[in-house]
Amino acid sequence: MTTSVHQLDDGAWLSVNDSREVNVSDLWWLARQDFCDCEMADFLAEGFVEIGVDHPDVEGRVAGQCIACGESGVTDWVTLGRVVDPDEGEFYAVDPTSVHVPERRRRLARPAES
């Protein structure tokens, strides 16, 4: 089956296959990032702006701010979790408290479904 992904409730949630999986208001460590000048951004997620799939990863661009320096804006693409087997549909979220590396994606990543 296809994996359905979208942001929900004004960007409060990443929904995967109609299940609310990743929420805003967590702190994410972002390394190797262009978001701010900090070596590692201590990033407060305030809203999911865009969601995409780069199989098997589910990725998002997230609005928020670095609570260390105060820079606010939208991140590059951050991996939010994985759907390893689309037939099974099980979503495995990443742990926000570990360190994440945002990526600039080279192709348009706005398929509503893939």
Partner: peptide, 22 residues
């Protein structure tokens, strides 16, 4: 239906019902 949760919860809002959080 599980796969229609998000759609129905969005529609229910029109009738004043907002599904609470996770």
């Amino acid at each position: 239906p599980d796969e229609e949760h998000d759609a129905w919860f969005e529609r229910f809002k029109w009738w004043g019902l907002y599904h609470q959080r996770k």
